[in-house]
Design a protein around this nucleic acid. Structure first.
Lengths: 292, 292
DNA sequence: ATAATAGTGTCTATCAGACATTATCGG
DNA sequence: CCGATAATGTCTGATAGACACTATTAT
């Protein structure tokens, strides 16, 4: 398949690197920002003010400023605009590139390539709308319908355990409660990819601590894993395992000021250690029914 | 940090989704195509015909055709143009997205966002130049200097074991032999990221088989791992481990027509199984000196 | 015969998971 | 005291790695 004719490839050649000779492609960043609120996984979303998908929730994002910022910088900027965080608070947020989405018709107006980012954030204040969004908020991920399914069907990829929330109530689509429907564009797919990445990433990195405050107890850390994985873990084994992985957590020497409301000893406090990879990793409980 | 003024954010808002109101950003795909030749890992590269970086090797790539193809399709097209493979042969090549690189000054001419892809290919014929490249070829990865280092220094991230090649000979920079220098643009960084991805990916997926033909022996499979990881593996343990992972390989019932030139029994032949993930994974030998 | 390779068997240290136990707290 | 939770201890099955061994072929 080597250069069949003087068609598109030839035009590419003659045009060199000047894209003005072509139809343009827009470059945006979109952020899948995850956090834990009240024991449930939430994602930052903005409500679209205009068409297409007016009134639907979408991932926060926006144009990359040509010649003036890197992709990482653009993602951090968008995240800051939507969360209202200052640089110091943003420092505690983990931000990594997730992948790029560039189908020619994913936006009906023109060809848009979106570079998606994944963020792990500790408990944060309410979001605030930035840019052209009508509103912003933290949505429980299980309130979002997976792509390619009717709004009321809710299979595998999303949330499997602890169905403790108020889901199913039904007063509309206010963040923090029931169904938020499908996300705009292909953002449901991007979210699903982000969730899978998050589930995999906390296996072999200490990033679960990014969902917590400066200090935390082993039980709080376990609850992060249980929420993200949607599975219950054995408390005793988890405890021993976490302490045995070098560099995962380090003791502060302190204990919680007061134990849980139902009694029990004061839990010791830890902070994130200096490891960037967990050796050995914390493996998810059997999912051998997984992709064969 | 919420919308400080009516500056850039305001202009974004007013411009909506029309990037013609801004300086444009070009979108390209670049491919890190890896293959094994003569027991060494090679990467597909093209020799640049014009500035910048004229005469230097670069990763094959090109513009995404606006409104007409997805990123995946663009990557497959670029790979086909440079390798001369038809659709059938391309079918046996694994191609996945690696990541995007979009610093504002990575190309001196304008802001270019490159979506990088990683390809695992079986032994292929010589490459052919496509597009505006002066030449194309398979370069041994250890002949490429890592980014940010003088050409003759060659530390960690690249190739650690089996220094069997002719590296250091010194008759110029013909593919397949000695030093090829640093790659153009930030392609050395992209290559390093691709190599690390490849090393990690063969741990928990059966993609090492993508470097081999339709059928292969366990020893050939082990040599793939040894080459990609740059470490020697215990033949006996590797053999038992591979056969114990469900769905990794399946026997063809046949044996090699003739054993190795130095004798020994005929090895049994296998083909890739139907597993997409390896459970349990094949872990790289201790690199606990790794990133802590 | 010798050397090299394919494939299998055996032993041990390690680890994940199930389960039990002890200690500390609130009600 | 009772129930719940934090933290540790014990046992077992599975596995990775070291090593040994047998079988098969070229020279």
């Amino acid at each position: 398949m080597a250069e069949p004719d003087g068609g598109q490839a030839e035009r590419d050649f003659l045009a060199g690197y000047d894209p003005r000779a072509f139809d343009p492609i827009a470059v945006t960043v979109d952020v899948v920002a995850l956090t834990l609120r009240a024991g449930r996984l939430h994602v930052l979303a903005v409500e679209r003010g205009g068409p297409p998908f007016a009134g639907r929730w979408a991932l926060p994002g926006g144009f990359v400023r040509a010649g003036r910022e890197s992709l990482d910088e653009a993602a951090a900027r968008e995240l800051a605009e939507e969360t209202g965080l200052d640089a110091a608070a943003l420092d505690r947020v983990h931000l990594e590139q997730l992948g790029s989405y560039g189908g020619p018709r994913r936006d009906p107006r023109m060809h848009v390539v979106s570079v998606a980012y994944l963020a792990f954030a500790p408990g944060l204040p309410d979001a605030q709308a930035g840019g052209d969004a009508a509103g912003a908020g933290w949505l429980p991920v299980e309130a979002i319908s997976p792509p390619g399914q009717p709004d009321h069907v809710r299979p595998r990829p999303f949330e499997q355990g602890r169905r403790t929330g108020t889901y199913g109530g039904g007063t509309g689509r206010r963040p923090g409660t029931d169904s938020a429907g499908r996300l705009a564009f292909d953002h449901g797919l991007i979210l699903a990819d982000g969730l899978e990445r998050a589930r995999a990433k906390i296996e072999y990195t200490p990033l679960a601590t990014a969902f917590l405050g400066e200090t935390f107890t082993i039980t709080e850390l376990r609850e992060v894993y249980e929420t993200v994985w949607g599975a219950e873990l054995h408390a005793g084994n988890f405890h021993r395992k976490v302490l045995s992985v070098p560099g995962f957590v380090e003791s502060t020497g302190e204990t919680e000021s007061r134990p849980g409301s139902r009694g029990g000893p004061r839990a010791r406090l830890y902070r994130a250690g200096d490891a960037r990879l967990l050796h050995p990793a914390l493996l998810r409980p059997d999912r051998e029914a997984g992709v064969r």
